[in-house]
Design a protein around this nucleic acid. Structure first.
Lengths: 127, 127
DNA sequence: CAGGATCCGATTGGATACTG
DNA sequence: CAGTATCCAATCGGATCCTG
């Protein structure tokens, strides 16, 4: 089942969806710092997300999706047990930069957004 | 139940999720052209998405979410039946601009991404 | 016309157990 | 350690019906 899936998506929609999902952007941010092994990556994601850990299965799914699109590369050593490391490709680094820009923008405007939400929620609270 | 929901999200995650969902970015693109009424908006979204129409319920949900964050404004006339129009706020226009940038980037790199996918799918096809 | 209420299918993400 | 396979809960989006 390696081939299709939701692969008929245009890159536009699927990449936007990637950035919008629960973990992918965080993975990009971490991989931008250096190369990481699977288990290490899981641990650091758990720490910085602060809520809860990514499951092993979902981490694999997200890494595969990023690899399929050419955003990350996977390197395996011949050791036993094998060591598998992930790193951003140049394309992935470029995507990361875009994600950063977006995050920075949201940070600068985050106050306004939260103010709107507070006002909205206050107005609707008396239902 | 107007208040909470997934409202405890930080703007970062929720705005990224907004851009990554099925319709929101498309809605931003359309609203950037002018003000639209609910039914018109539904029709034009159906046309440009080419796959299938957004349901009435989901359009309302998306518009409410955008309104809550202060990205769009809702204007109602005193007519019977009332006319309801939606338009981008300055904050929403700024978000739209960021979405456009991202889309443009994906377009310029889309070829590479699709090439990676093709290679990946071909490699995995012989399972 | 705008939109709320229901019901439903599909997808997403998490927990756990198991394999090379 | 890295990854797969199940099973399950929650969320998302769609279809339909109903109301001011």
């Amino acid at each position: 089942m390696a081939s299709s899936g939701r692969g008929r998506d245009t890159p536009i929609r699927s990449v936007m969806a990637l950035l919008g999902d629960r973990w992918t952007t965080l993975i990009l941010l971490v991989l931008a710092t250096s190369e990481w092994r699977h288990a290490e990556l899981r641990r650091v994601l758990a720490r910085i997300s602060a809520e809860q850990a990514i499951s092993q299965r979902v981490l694999t799914l997200k890494l595969r999706a990023l690899e399929r699109d050419g955003f990350i590369s996977r390197r395996v050593t011949a050791d036993v047990p094998p060591k598998v490391s992930y790193a951003l490709t140049p394309l992935g680094l470029a995507l990361h930069d875009r994600a950063r820009d977006l995050i920075e923008w949201i940070k600068t405007r985050g106050g306004e957004i939260e103010a709107h939400r507070a006002a909205w929620d206050a107005a609707g609270a008396g239902d």
